[in-house]
Amino acid sequence: MNSEQPEGPGKPQPPSDRGTPVGRRVLLGTIGLGALGVVTAPALQRALEGFLGAAAGKDPTGLTGLLPNGGGFRYYSVASSVPHKNATNYRLTVDGLVDRPKTYTLDDLRALPQTRLVKDVQCVTGWRVPGTPFEGVRLSRLLDAAGVRSTAGAVRFTCFDGTYTESLTLDQARRADVLVALRMQDKNIGHDHGGPVRLYVAPMYFYKSAKWLSGITVTEDVKPGYWEDRGYDVDAWVGHSNGRDDDPTN
């Protein structure tokens, strides 16, 4: 058995001179710094956001975008792969408790009056993109065109990634700052950002703004959506939900 012992026969070699326990101090110091970081995070974060936001504007490599709080959007998808849709094969259906169910093509949506909003985007995980223009058709216009029945109380959204769902109460859905968005940052919305058509719910955390929107179903009651089944708030007002106190996005 002695041959299995790492340090030759006999007992483990005691540290030759006892020495100072610097290792323990470094370990405890690291933990202390971590705790201090959590306590001072709000101030540090504000300072860094300002600095990195300015640096990102002058950074041709785009590497600052990879730093925490480096600004810009991040790609989140809950599905393993998402089909690409374009003007020829994209369809948006409006159905459920409505008098006139309807299917829109991309050109149909583009032909309707467009509304442009410029507000901040706030993600529930902390990142924020200031002053982002969104352009599209007011959801209330599509609901009015379909003729919502009096028994209805909510709207459910489905997506062509086949997985994601979202929902709003009818009152929330009728707000003037809720769009079926076709353009973001004054460009047609690309696939990675949820194009060609995504929802845009300006006053709420960005997970409410479902990407790759393909279905609008009017229902009686709110059904929690994908992330809401996993613990996020259904009424996701920025600054008043999910245990966060971010500034409003207007």
Binding site: G34, G37, Q45, P68, T125, R244
Partner: peptide, 8 residues
């Protein structure tokens, strides 16, 4: 706390 923890 969560925002601060995310930052760290």
């Amino acid at each position: 706390w969560r925002t601060s923890a995310t930052f760290v």
